[in-house]
């Protein structure tokens, strides 16, 4: 994949894939406007960036805003929201369709709802490839089979002809990953991709994602509620609360977070290695709702 010509190649590699500055998303409700995202700024390089938060923090809304997949009632504004040099806010519907899947892909929590129940999974992966590449159906099939192998499906030929209801949750998620990565995107947004899976399956799926990011130099936004997971899986962590970023830290420094909310969130987790009589409960503070 050729990157945009720049002064130097090094600068091109360094340039962020996704940049958001003062991103705001509001929803038009029956009774007034609800501010879901209230000024979020971050940039994504070729790394694994986690966005963590509780339900209602707006973490999924951020992912959808980048894909421009918000419902029509959403009002998205930002000082800057770009994929490389493309302004995602002013891009036409046609441009967005080209970007989605081809350059930016998304994996959802439950593959059951993302796969078409009346087509075989192989056809769907091949179709995803043909949407963005002009190739014969035979070549698309070959690509799809290679991709199924890449996500560690043991007998790709057999799986190719299965229908979505015939595959397990873990297998379904692998198929989704194959489908989302077949057109070689540069950014992958994964919205709770492993929360519906068992721990051992989860580990395997994460390993696949990890390899893909490393081999292909992807930038990944990993939306999750699981602090223990992002600590060991991601490079950087953004912690969101009520539509704002309260803190951004390197994953390795997650134990040294400063903000009282981040600290409270970490403390309220039951620990595998130490026993406590009671779990500390977060005492919420109205000042957290304001800008940091």
């Amino acid at each position: 994949m050729s990157s945009t010509p720049r002064a130097s190649d090094a600068a091109a590699v360094q340039a962020p894939l996704i940049e958001a500055r003062d991103l705001r998303v509001a929803f038009q409700m029956q009774r007034g406007v609800f501010q879901a995202i209230r000024g979020v700024s971050f940039s994504l390089g070729r790394e694994k960036l986690a966005i963590v938060g509780e339900s209602g923090s707006g973490k999924s809304t951020v992912g959808r805003a980048i894909m421009r997949l918000n419902p029509p009632s959403a009002i998205v504004t930002a000082e800057r929201l770009t994929f490389k040099d493309v302004d995602l806010l002013s891009a036409s519907k046609k441009e967005l369709r080209r970007l989605r899947g081809r350059h930016i892909s998304m994996i959802m929590q439950d593959p059951k709802y993302s796969l078409n129940p009346v087509a075989t999974v192989g056809e769907q992966i091949a179709e995803a490839y043909r949407t963005h590449h002009k190739v014969s159906s035979r070549e698309a099939r070959e690509r799809a089979l290679t991709m199924l192998e890449a996500v560690q499906i043991r007998s790709p030929k057999r799986v190719y002809d299965l229908y979505p209801h015939q595959v397990s949750g873990g297998m379904g998620q692998r198929i989704m990953i194959a489908m989302m990565l077949i057109s070689d995107p540069e950014v992958l947004i994964a919205d709770e991709p492993t929360s519906a899976l068992d721990v051992t399956v989860r580990l395997q799926i994460l390993a696949i994602l990890d390899d893909m990011v490393k081999e292909r130099g992807l930038g990944m936004i990993f939306i999750s509620h699981d602090l223990n997971l992002v600590r060991s899986f991601c490079d950087r962590v953004i912690i969101m609360y009520a539509g704002r970023i309260v803190e951004t830290v390197a994953a390795a420094d997650l134990d040294n977070v400063q903000h009282p909310y981040s600290r409270g969130l970490l403390n309220s987790l039951p620990r595998l290695d130490q026993k406590r009589d009671r779990l500390p409960v977060i005492q919420r503070d109205d000042s957290w709702l304001e800008a940091v």
Partner: peptide, 19 residues
């Protein structure tokens, strides 16, 4: 033991072992 380890954190080599 594997269930416990897998719950603990993400580890590339552990994933290989499981597979």
């Amino acid at each position: 033991r594997m269930l416990f380890d897998a719950s603990h954190h993400y580890d590339r080599s552990m994933a290989n072992d499981i597979t």
